[in-house]
């Protein structure tokens, strides 16, 4: 079983696109479901921390995998 409900690949996109896409993707999820986001923009680390804090969607994980940054957001 995968540990996320939906996956969003925002590789190659830079600010503000990864956040815009994540915002859109979260809209389609139910409360408690998990969105996994893959991004390559180094600026996305701070962006997703701020996004989670501001929107109340919990940032379960923020890790660096090779050249990518992987996030798991739990919809509030």
């Amino acid at each position: 079983m995968s540990d996320f409900t939906k996956e969003l690949d925002a590789s190659g996109l830079n600010c503000p696109m990864p956040i815009l896409r994540a915002k859109k993707a979260l809209k389609d999820l139910q409360s408690g479901e998990i969105l996994r986001v893959i991004a390559t923009d180094p600026g996305s680390v701070k962006d997703f921390e701020a996004f989670a804090k501001q929107t109340g969607n919990e940032l379960l994980e923020s890790i660096e995998e090779g050249d990518s940054f992987v996030y798991r957001l739990k919809k509030s």
Binding site: C15, A50, F51, Q54
Partner: peptide, 19 residues
């Protein structure tokens, strides 16, 4: 400090964050 006006507009418009 990641000073960026476009990022500033994005933070505000997309997250409601005005830092």
């Amino acid at each position: 400090t990641n000073f960026c006006t476009m990022g500033a507009v994005s933070d505000w418009v997309n997250m409601g964050l005005k830092g």
